[in-house]
């Protein structure tokens, strides 16, 4: 029973990490309607930035969170402006290839610059764990978990209450009509992509306390992020949060009860089933069938 409870807690906390990565992905898809295959590479860039800030300047990852988020905002905005925007009217497959191309280029650039070595920060706070009764909890995981929930709440308020947030939703549903309302559609896309990337920057800082960085770290997380987002419904923030917690639980339980090297098989199978059977996600919030 104790081990089960611990597994549940581990699963939920892991879910927090998956959530923080998935939020940006679902936001970008929700607004720009582009599936960003380069999402993982944004995370990689962020984690290397956090690593360098820690190594060169001695910054704790949590300190670098804001500057790294800003840096990724710019990176995302640049990708949107110079790669995605010219292709907005192109066929979906062209957009897929564009982001796949960006992903391939960035991943290999990481390999060129940093080599294939695995690098780890030892941050102090965030890496150590504490006891809560019988349960052992890693402080960084808890912080990540709480931040994920706060981020979803904050974005929700932003999307519902502000003119720009409303414009995000309007643009995602009807570009042409939004432009007739006086919305600068291209700029909204740049903001949305930037904001989505900034969320990844935040994720990079939070995760750096627990995970090492290497050029393909992005691929490791992106596939999971896609699973999460599809599970919750592409484009839905709450869906991403719930999907992340579910996948975290699956990861933790399947890893223990089935086999550690098959846990990914379990959630990929869930992923395939969801896409095939219910492309709008578990809660029907997404629009995967479009």
């Amino acid at each position: 029973m104790d081990i089960f409870l611990q597994l549940i807690v581990n699963g939920l906390l892991l879910g927090g990490a998956y959530a923080i990565i998935s939020i940006g992905l679902t936001l970008i898809f929700g607004v720009v309607r582009v599936v960003n295959f380069a999402h993982g590479e944004l995370l990689m860039i962020g984690m290397y930035a956090v690593f360098l800030a820690s190594q060169q300047l001695g910054w704790h990852p949590y300190v670098s969170a804001i500057p790294v988020a800003l840096m990724l905002f710019v990176t995302g905005a640049v990708i949107q402006r110079f790669v995605i925007q010219p292709l907005l009217k192109a066929d979906p497959h062209i957009q897929i290839f564009a982001t796949v191309g960006v992903s391939t280029a960035l991943l290999n650039l990481g390999l060129l610059i940093f080599g294939a070595d695995v690098r780890q920060i030892s941050p102090g706070f965030g890496a150590e764990s504490f006891q809560l009764g019988e349960l052992s909890i890693v402080s960084g995981q808890l912080v990540t978990f709480l931040m994920a929930i706060a981020l979803v709440g904050g974005l929700h308020v932003f999307l519902q209450r502000t003119y720009v947030g409303r414009a995000f939703r309007a643009v995602s549903q009807h570009r042409y009509a939004a432009s007739l309302m006086g919305v600068n559609v291209d700029r909204m896309y740049v903001y949305a992509f930037g904001l989505g990337a900034a969320c990844v920057g935040l994720a990079a800082a939070l995760l750096s306390t627990q995970y090492p960085v290497f050029p393909t770290v992005g691929s490791y997380f992106t596939l999971t992020a896609f699973v999460v987002v599809v599970l919750g419904g592409m484009g839905s923030l709450y869906g991403a949060l719930i999907g992340a917690l579910l996948i975290g639980l699956v990861d933790s339980l399947a890893g223990y009860y089935i086999s550690p090297d098959l846990k990914e098989v379990v959630y990929f199978v869930i992923f395939i089933l969801i896409l095939v059977v219910r492309p709008t996600g578990l809660l029907g919030l997404g629009r995967g069938s479009e």
């Binding site: 290839f97 191309g101 391939t104 280029a105 390999l111």
Partner: peptide, 22 residues
């Protein structure tokens, strides 16, 4: 230069082709 060279070139060519002659 490092092991990522040809992958980097693939990625860049892909993006350039997609942008200039889809």
């Amino acid at each position: 230069l490092g092991s990522g060279t040809h992958g980097f070139i693939y990625g860049v060519i892909l993006v350039v082709v997609v942008l200039t002659m889809p």
